[in-house]
């Protein structure tokens, strides 16, 4: 399946990654090659095969509704690149 630069650009935007023009060039060539390799899967007969989303046959793993201590707010904010009023600060979200 051919993958155009526009597609790579669109997908990069979905993934919120800004690509430099030279990255865009290289990635579209490389991704096309990789996707071509993936096409090998089309040979496999899977029409009656269920998908495996979880390899374990585990079922119904729960935790009890019991309060556990939360983190200290200082620890929560320690790694924050930008904070204000004990909250994380981001560029204004235009609603």
């Amino acid at each position: 399946m051919a993958i155009s630069k526009d597609t790579v650009k669109y997908v990069a935007h979905l993934a919120r990654i800004r690509l430099k023009p030279e990255e865009l060039d290289v990635f579209s060539v490389q991704l096309e090659e990789i996707l071509k390799y993936m096409e090998k899967l089309n040979e496999a007969e899977v029409s009656h095969i269920p998908p495996t989303s979880h390899i374990l046959s585990l079922k119904n793993v729960f935790r009890a509704d019991q309060v556990r201590p939360s983190l200290d707010v200082d620890a929560v904010l320690e790694n924050a690149p930008k904070k204000k009023d004990r909250q994380f600060s981001v560029p204004k979200v235009i609603a």
Partner: peptide, 28 residues
């Protein structure tokens, strides 16, 4: 970046069945 873009692509609308779902079946 390459892997994130590839992974985003195979999950994106219209490609999920062809790539991701098929891969899960072959995983079986």
């Amino acid at each position: 970046k390459r892997r994130i873009i590839l992974g985003t692509y195979v999950l994106s609308h219209g490609y999920y069945e062809a790539y991701y779902l098929r891969a899960q079946k072959v995983r079986t």
